[in-house]
Simulated scan of single mutants.
Amino acid sequence: MVGKRKQLSKNCLSAAIEDYIPKNNLYRRLKKVLDLSFLYEIVKPYYGKCGQKSVDTVVFFKLQLVAHFENLCSERALIKKSQLRLDILHFLD
């Protein structure tokens, strides 16, 4: 099944995180201009109707972009770096 994250309303925590990310940060600028919502329709035929939901398609694609930009070959390194950096967490929502 295609997984899709439930968007929470913008709360004070995400607004506070934005205050710590520089205005010219790559991931902050990329988040403003990159709309990947079209991916849900593209990948829909490749997923079954039952079973456990997958990782959100947009988040997965964004993680692949982060791996490319940060020159990471390992998924473990990617997850570790993503957990530690506020700019990447903000980019992933």
Results as ranks from 00 to 15, higher is better:
M1F: 11
V2Y: 03
K4H: 11
R5S: 11
R5I: 11
R5H: 07
K6N: 13
K6Y: 08
Q7Y: 11
Q7M: 13
S9M: 11
C12I: 14
C12Y: 13
C12R: 14
L13H: 11
S14R: 15
S14K: 12
A15W: 09
A15P: 04
A15H: 09
A16M: 15
I17H: 01
E18T: 05
E18Q: 10
D19A: 14
D19K: 13
Y20K: 03
P22K: 06
K23R: 13
N24W: 10
N24G: 08
N25D: 15
N25H: 12
L26S: 04
L26P: 01
L26H: 00
R28G: 00
R29F: 00
L30M: 15
L30F: 13
D35S: 09
D35Q: 07
L36I: 06
S37C: 06
S37W: 02
L39A: 09
Y40N: 01
I42M: 15
P45Y: 11
P45T: 10
Y47W: 04
G48H: 12
G48P: 08
K49G: 14
C50G: 11
C50F: 13
G51C: 09
V55R: 15
V55E: 14
V58T: 12
V58W: 08
V59F: 06
F60W: 07
F60Q: 09
F61E: 07
K62C: 07
K62E: 05
K62T: 04
Q64E: 12
Q64C: 13
L65G: 04
L65R: 00
V66R: 02
H68K: 07
E70R: 07
N71H: 14
N71R: 14
E75L: 05
E75S: 00
E75Q: 00
E75Y: 00
R76S: 07
R76I: 00
R76E: 06
A77S: 12
L78H: 03
K81C: 03
S82L: 05
Q83V: 02
Q83C: 07
R85A: 05
L86K: 10
L86S: 06
L86T: 03
D87W: 06
I88F: 02
L89F: 10
L89N: 07
F91A: 08
F91L: 07
F91N: 03
L92W: 02
L92R: 01
D93S: 10
D93N: 13
